[in-house]
Design a protein around this nucleic acid. Sequence first.
DNA 1: CTGCAAGTTGAAGTTCACTTCAACTCAAGG
DNA 2: CCTTGAGTTGAAGTGAACTTCAACTTGCAG
Lengths: 158, 158
Amino acid sequence: MTHASARPDVEPTVTGTMTIGQLAARSGVAASALRYYERLGLIRADRTGGNQRRYDRAELRQVAFIRIAQQVGISLEEIREALDSLPESRTPTAADWARLSASWRNRLDERIRLIEKLRDNLVGCIGCGCLSLEKCALYNAGDALGAEGPGARLMLPR
Amino acid sequence: MTHASARPDVEPTVTGTMTIGQLAARSGVAASALRYYERLGLIRADRTGGNQRRYDRAELRQVAFIRIAQQVGISLEEIREALDSLPESRTPTAADWARLSASWRNRLDERIRLIEKLRDNLVGCIGCGCLSLEKCALYNAGDALGAEGPGARLMLPR
DNA sequence: CTGCAAGTTGAAGTTCACTTCAACTCAAGG
DNA sequence: CCTTGAGTTGAAGTGAACTTCAACTTGCAG
């Protein structure tokens, strides 16, 4: 083993910008995914003279936001729309983020309500055999089951 | 409008079995999806002399279970595994279902915990700008962010 | 200055969960 | 018997979210 002191090669440079590899390592998101996000307009990067991406520190927060939103079941397209609603002034302020996330609180609340209903009814409802689909409160809770258009569906409704 | 009495053409026959169209209508799942589920071994159907599917009433419950599990973010493959764990004796009993759903309660609890954490931290965490990824409790909550293998990822972790 | 890991692009591939299509066959009312 | 709507199959298409590949180019340690 080499000397145990800090390895400087992954540390962000003095300028505070990161390469795609560094952002990937720090965010836990694959570099290919970051490029994909950029193509979709979810994140942005400056370029060096040699056309390599250099990410601002702020992009780390942006990527975190994207990942979290995804975990909540929001599609990248919807995330893009939300991010587009941020002011043009780059590097959104804390207040901007707060406004955005507040608007998603409802979605989270809805999701929790649904899953809790699911959990609370699972044993009782399926166990009791009441799952007759027409009357069962559980089943009707997630009403948006009807198909609409081709392609794969989102796992969770709405 | 014709006379308002019940239309018998969608009603299940005296035998209690359903055509694929009837099961589709009653479960809210497209017929094509039902055939797909059958290919994956998630549901089963008897056949008429002319090779048409005839579903037992019990399959309605089965389909409901599948749909609910999906809403919780469980993949069809995992659902199949769970259903395979049911006893060979066709038409599982209420106790069987209860056992199965009980084993999924944990997953539901986990999901709820995660989303609640997300919700509770969203405004505070992103708003305050603490989202430095390494320290943020919110981000670390959903740790399984690392990639593994090709293909699309599940929306929600685990 | 050289070597080589890390970066770049566009195109094509992958997985999941379906849907759509074409080309039939079945079932049942009139 | 005929027609018509519902059902059958296998193959191919779809959308989301990425990954992988090939064929280069950059950037920096030695």
